[in-house]
């Protein structure tokens, strides 16, 4: 099956699943879980472009999620900006910050981006905790409801629809990118960086581009999250949240967009249903990461696809 056809098939299945899921929901708890899973999935589709295709790790993606969330919360709440404008401001802030850090760091070979994003992520998290007048500090702050182009987004079904459509669009864009000259060039860099550069591939520029894009996608998801939950705390931006995002991508399958979605959904939804395991949450998460890297280094979805003889997307 060639790229375009498997892409269309994958998107069709995603659309069907997204549209059909609400039929199985019996109460608002299910919507809640689905919306949170969808928001994580949006972050992970973006982060997967960075980890799976650009071969770089971000240990601070929750910071970009947090920047989007707090931009929406502060600008629509205290400053009375329209939600669309606040969301765009969050995108610009996240993208700008990502660009500022990544340009010099990605010109170095190695895993310096992981270290820099780790530092950046913790700084953002401390800022959100300490700037109490702006953010309410560790106790958090209220976020006004979302009004998009004059239409109030209210109720579980409408919120679900918004998140589902967002996830679908982000997935579509990610699949396009992977199958474009940029995606091909990134895979080439992974195979042989020297040869790719001899073909004219500017590997540094592409890595920066993908990092900035993934930061902006996280920021968008953060904005949605803030409005949906109505109350925002700095816990959403802390280091462990960044690690959770990385875990979702890695377990679902690096370099597999649908793997990232599956990873995000499973790791967001499962703890909600397994509240009895609350004490063991970290043990399970840690074990999953270690065992996953040893036994399924390519992730669940690509490994399954390989065994079934499918092309992984």
């Amino acid at each position: 099956m060639d790229g375009a056809r498997s892409r269309l098939l994958g998107l069709a299945i995603l659309a069907l699943v997204l549209a059909g899921l609400p039929l199985t929901f019996t109460n608002s708890f299910w919507y809640d879980v689905a919306i949170h899973s969808g928001i994580s999935a949006i972050v992970c589709v973006g982060l997967n472009l960075l980890i799976g295709y650009a071969g770089q790790i971000s240990l601070g993606h929750a910071a970009f999620f947090g920047i989007g969330a707090y931009a929406s919360a502060i600008l629509t709440g205290s400053w009375r900006w329209p939600a669309e404008l606040a969301l765009l401001a969050g995108l610009a802030l996240s993208g700008g910050l990502a660009l500022l850090v990544a340009r010099p760091i990605l010109a170095l070979r190695g895993h310096y981006l992981a270290m820099a994003t780790l530092g950046l992520g913790i700084i953002v998290s401390i800022l959100l905790n300490q700037e109490i007048r702006l953010t309410g500090g560790p106790d958090g702050m209220p976020v006004p409801g979302l009004v998009l182009f004059g239409f109030p987004v209210r109720g579980p079904l409408v919120w679900y629809a918004l998140v589902a459509v967002s996830l679908f669009i982000v997935t579509l864009l990610a699949l396009h990118l992977v199958d474009s000259p940029i995606g091909r060039a990134l895979r080439a860099v992974h195979g042989s960086e020297l040869a790719a550069r001899a073909c004219g591939v500017d590997s540094t520029r592409l890595k920066v581009l993908v990092f900035v894009l993934s930061a902006m996608i996280a920021s968008y998801a953060g904005s949605l999250f803030a409005h949906f939950s109505g109350w925002l705390t700095p816990a959403e931006a802390e280091f462990m949240r960044s690690i959770e995002f990385v875990t979702m991508v890695v377990l679902g399958g690096m370099a597999s967009t649908f793997g990232a979605i599956v990873g995000a959904v499973v790791l967001t939804a499962l703890p909600q249903f397994l509240t009895v395991f609350h004490d063991y949450e970290h043990v399970v998460l840690g074990l999953a990461l270690v065992l996953g890297m040893i036994f399924l280094p390519r992730g669940v979805v690509p490994e399954l696809a390989r065994r079934l003889g499918w092309r992984a997307l």
Binding site: I51, V246, T247, Y280, E281, V283, L285, L289, M293
Partner: peptide
């Protein structure tokens, strides 16, 4: 990349076990 993730996983695991 994988090894960084393994050590992060191990740290979460050790921490989780210590909490229990």
């Amino acid at each position: 990349t994988g090894l960084v993730i393994v050590t992060i996983g191990a740290s979460i695991l050790i921490r989780g076990l210590a909490g229990i």
